[in-house]
Each structure stands twice: as C-alpha cells, then as structure tokens.
Write a protein that binds this DNA or RNA. Structure first.
Lengths: 138, 138
DNA sequence: TATACACCCTGTAGTCGCTATAGGGTCAAG
DNA sequence: CTTGACCCTATAGCGACTACAGGGTGTATA
C-alpha cells in the first residue's frame, strides 16, 4: 500500500503538462485511470508519473498519440522484440526528414518572393504578383 | 463577354481544389458568394477563378487562412503600401525558418536515439529507455 | 464560524484547415 | 423515363489539445 499519492496538479507541475491535457490522456487511453480520494480527486501513483513523463518525452520528439500508444504497449511487454520499436522510431524520423526537406524548398521560394519586392504600392508588389496567376484572360 | 459562368466543379478541376474546400472558403469569407443559376447552382465569374488560384498558391506556400485573408484584402486595395504585404511574408518566412531549425534538432535527437539501439528485446531497448527518463525526485 | 481562495470535478465546445458523410435536388443523355 | 454525373445544405469528424461553464472540495485566515 504505497500511500504517497499525487494530485493531478502535482503531475501537472512535475511534467509541465496542463491538467486538462492529463485528463485528455486518460480519456484517450494513454494514462490509466487512477484511484480516487473521498472527495473524488484523482490520486496518482509514482507509476503514473513515469508513464506521463514517457508520453511527454515521446510527444516532445514529435511522435503522434497513436505512435505513443504503440510505444507504451511495447514498453509494457518487456520481453517482446525491439524491432517494432525501431520501426516506429525510424518511420517517424523519415517523416521528420521529409518535413525538413519540404520546408526547405518552401523557404527557398519564400526567399525569392520576398527578395523580389522592391516596390512601394501593392499594385506593383512582386509578392502579390507571385501569388496571382498569370492573367490568361481569353 | 464575361457571361461564361463556371460551375463549382469547373473551379475544382481548374485549381485542383476539392469542391467541399471551395464551399469552405466561401463560408469562411475567402471567396465571395457567386450568383446562382435557376437550379441554385453556384455560377462563378473568371474573377472567382483568379481569387481561388491566389488562395491556393498562398496556401501552397504555407500561409494560414488568416494570412491569406489579409493578403487578399491588401491585394484588393492596390494603392496601399506594399509594406504590410512584406510584413506578412517575412513573418511567415521566419516561422518556416524556425520550424526547420526545430525539426533539425529533433532529427538529431531521433538519430541518436535510433543509433543507440543494438538490442533484441524491449527490456534492453535504448529507444524505450531514452523515452523513460530516470524518475527525478524533487 | 464564515469566507476567501486554490484546487479539483464533469461535460461541452472551440481551435485549424479541411474532409467525409447523409440526404436530398438538378440536368443532360440514352 | 431512367440513369448517372453533378450540385445543394447541414453536420460531424480528424489530431492534440485548450478553454470554458458550472459546480464541488479542502484549507488558511478574519
């Protein structure tokens, strides 16, 4: 009987997670429902804190909630092969890599567009012009 | 002359925008309401097509709908100073730049995490371990 | 004892930018 | 006269929260 229970506010402060977000994780099956006090307050065990920290760390690394759920399930079954973990991590890294490339080519275009503007009024603005389609008015 | 009306499907095909998205833009004030046919079909002018193209191009460049709205308003008042356009474009570019940097440092961490895994079972998995930080007292 | 205040509860709706349905109406061709 | 493509409105869903509204609980102080 460990009696050092934590309130939702304690978890919030300990992990930098908003209280509403913690309840959201519970409702969405990432964090198991804790026991309750007489006044119906959530009373967490240290294990909950560990799990929430895990979730936050994975979220910080950009894993989706679905991916976090999968990682949690895998980490719960510690005898399982590590390969599935690797697959999730690599898929996520590839996704991040793709996003970086996309944003880099986007930035190149934005740089060009911004660079091209030497005008004073919107009528001559190269930025606006680059957004407007060539007037193929027939 | 300009009485060749376009259906919503025409606009959709011409710009690669889903029909629902076009209606969404109308409901959200980006695309003005067109006139209607006797059968209550939307009947667009070429000006609508230009405006939708503008929206799509700006969206492709990652501008938010709020930013697109602002750009459209500016481009409508062609005597205005170009400075406001520049501000929006630069703000967006800065945002993109920031996202690239964030993702790059994220990828560095992911690379390290993935690299560190040489194990077979989850119990020893460095990826999982790196997500579950040592429980900090406080 | 009262009461002020921080904290907690549930439930619902809002954010962004669409996308996907449900349940119909319109219109031209065969 | 029916098929089928197209169109209409209205509503709900996505992800990952965030922000209320409208209450209850717990404790320190006047």
């Amino acid at each position: 009987m460990s009696s050092a229970h934590l309130s939702i506010g304690d978890l919030s402060r300990a992990t930098g997670t908003k209280v509403e977000t913690i309840r959201f994780y519970e409702k969405n099956g990432l964090l198991p429902e804790p026991s309750r006090t007489q006044g119906n307050y959530r009373a967490y065990e240290p294990a909950h804190l560990s799990r929430l920290s895990f979730i936050r760390r994975a979220r910080d690394l950009g894993f989706s909630l679905d991916q976090v759920r999968a990682l949690l399930t895998l980490s719960d079954d510690r005898s399982q092969s590590c390969a599935a973990v690797d697959v999730i991590a690599r898929a996520h890294r590839d996704e991040v890599e793709r996003k970086i490339k996309d944003l880099q080519s986007l930035k190149t275009v934005l740089d060009q567009v911004i660079e091209s503007c030497h005008c004073n009024i919107v009528a001559d603005c190269a930025i606006i012009e680059s957004l407007a389609p060539a007037p193929q008015g027939s």
